[in-house]
Amino acid sequence: MAEPFKNLINAGTVARAGQHLQRVWPGFDRPRFEQSAGHGLEALEFKARAMQLADALEATLPPDFEAAADLLEASLAPPIPLDAQGEPSALSAAQSEAGLSGWVVWSMGDYVARRGMTDVPRALRCLHALTQRFSAEFAIRPFIQRHPDATLTTISTWVNDPSAHVRRLVSEGSRPRLPWGLRLQALVADPAPTLPLLRALQDDPSAYVRRSVANHLNDIAKDHPELVADWVHQHLLTASPARTALLRHASRSLIKRGHAPTLSAWGLGQGLRGTVSLSLSATRAAVGGEIALAVSLASSSPEPQDLLVDYVVHHVRANGSTSPKVFKGWKLTLGPGEQRTLGKRHSLRPVTTRVLYPGPHRIELQVNGQTLAQADFELLN
């Protein structure tokens, strides 16, 4: 069995934090810090562990924020190096010996968010340092929420920072709907303030940064689909392969939804010229098993057709209603007059993000965003 994720913050994490904070400040009350941060740690879940460590920092660091920020920065390991593709490398034992990095920095960032609101410039300089040893994407969000002008003005200067960690923070920290993070409701309503940042970063040399930009645009697409469709139309025209990959990743939710302007941007705007059918391997299937889909396509066009074929499973919910979930199918070019058969096995095993309930389920087939065929089956316990 895999090690629980929460154990990434453990007694060793607390001890290393105490060691390095005492190294840079001999007067640091290490016993008090370690007792407070480690109390009942095994019983806590992941975020609660991080927040308890932040509580201990708040109780033991100097009350003067600038002095505390100086100590946090002095306790850090060298920045996490990036590999040839611009992705973060694994932490080494030497880095751990040299100073703090990794998950403990989450707690340090939370401390900065709690105590740094009265000195935003100093707090942001500290987050600039912290993000190079883990990520300050959670910690910077309260500053964007409470001091949007000052924070966005500062991070706009970071789009040319030498560190890819910092450039990524510009995009990741300002995502409207960052998972696990504070929702930035003002940017959900109006993402305009971050668009210049994304424009400056979408051709970043680091894939690490570009992936964040794609996820940021995908966040925006949930509330402003036309804006992202227009962005793709505009920025795909002269796109490099790297930018093209970014825009496709940014479009993924809209493509799954069959959003016509987005499909059009990718040359998938026309409906199928021809016929399609969908059949299932069984009319009944059990939770934990699988069901096979068979798709038959027949072209009636004298021209090739670029097709995106996805399928939607309407899962039964606990209250008896249904909830649609789009699954990736096939991307293909159907030749003139061609007939083609496609097959896929769909798993019915429960996953952590979805509970499967028995009852009648429907599968719909989408071709270039249009629902053209469907089939039903009964899911059994």
Results as ranks from 00 to 15, higher is better:
residue 67 A to I: 04
residue 67 A to C: 08
residue 253 S to F: 06
residue 112 V to Y: 00
residue 151 T to I: 07
residue 315 H to K: 08
residue 29 D to A: 11
residue 133 R to I: 05
residue 289 G to D: 11
residue 356 L to K: 08
residue 309 V to F: 00
residue 90 A to Q: 14
residue 98 A to P: 09
residue 190 D to H: 06
residue 238 T to M: 13
residue 255 I to R: 07
residue 132 Q to L: 05
residue 87 E to W: 15
residue 234 Q to E: 15
residue 6 K to F: 02
residue 182 L to T: 06
residue 14 V to N: 00
residue 151 T to R: 03
residue 92 S to R: 10
residue 266 W to G: 00
residue 126 C to M: 08
residue 141 R to L: 02
residue 28 F to T: 00
residue 267 G to Y: 13
residue 65 F to R: 01
residue 60 T to S: 14
residue 200 A to G: 04
residue 145 Q to N: 13
residue 71 L to I: 06
residue 171 S to D: 01
residue 227 L to G: 01
residue 11 A to C: 05
residue 49 R to P: 03
residue 73 E to S: 12
residue 280 L to G: 09
residue 312 V to P: 11
residue 3 E to Y: 07
residue 246 L to K: 00
residue 200 A to N: 07
residue 205 P to G: 04
residue 44 L to I: 02
residue 256 K to V: 02
residue 238 T to S: 14
residue 212 S to P: 12
residue 140 I to F: 00
residue 29 D to T: 04
residue 108 M to R: 05
residue 365 L to W: 07
residue 335 G to K: 04
residue 92 S to N: 08
residue 167 R to A: 11
residue 67 A to R: 13
residue 72 L to V: 08
residue 45 E to I: 02
residue 172 E to R: 02
residue 254 L to A: 03
residue 237 L to F: 06
residue 60 T to R: 03
residue 71 L to E: 05
residue 256 K to S: 02
residue 120 V to T: 02
residue 323 S to E: 15
residue 185 Q to E: 15
residue 172 E to M: 01
residue 178 L to N: 09
residue 92 S to I: 05
residue 304 P to N: 11
residue 107 S to E: 03
residue 54 A to V: 01
residue 286 A to I: 09
residue 106 W to R: 04
residue 120 V to I: 05
residue 134 F to K: 00
residue 114 R to Q: 10
residue 71 L to D: 07
residue 211 R to T: 07
residue 19 Q to G: 09
residue 349 R to C: 13
residue 29 D to P: 07
residue 95 Q to R: 09
residue 342 L to C: 06
residue 87 E to P: 12
residue 117 M to T: 01
residue 252 R to G: 02
residue 236 L to S: 12
residue 377 F to C: 04
residue 370 Q to T: 15
residue 138 F to A: 00
residue 145 Q to K: 15
residue 40 G to D: 15
residue 56 A to Q: 08
residue 61 L to H: 02
residue 166 V to F: 04
residue 290 E to T: 10
residue 223 D to I: 00
residue 197 L to Q: 09
residue 338 E to P: 07
residue 202 Q to W: 11
residue 279 S to C: 12
residue 244 T to V: 14
residue 237 L to C: 13
residue 333 T to K: 15
residue 7 N to D: 15
residue 256 K to Q: 10
residue 258 G to V: 05
residue 191 P to K: 04
residue 350 P to I: 08
residue 365 L to A: 06
residue 217 L to T: 06
residue 262 T to P: 05
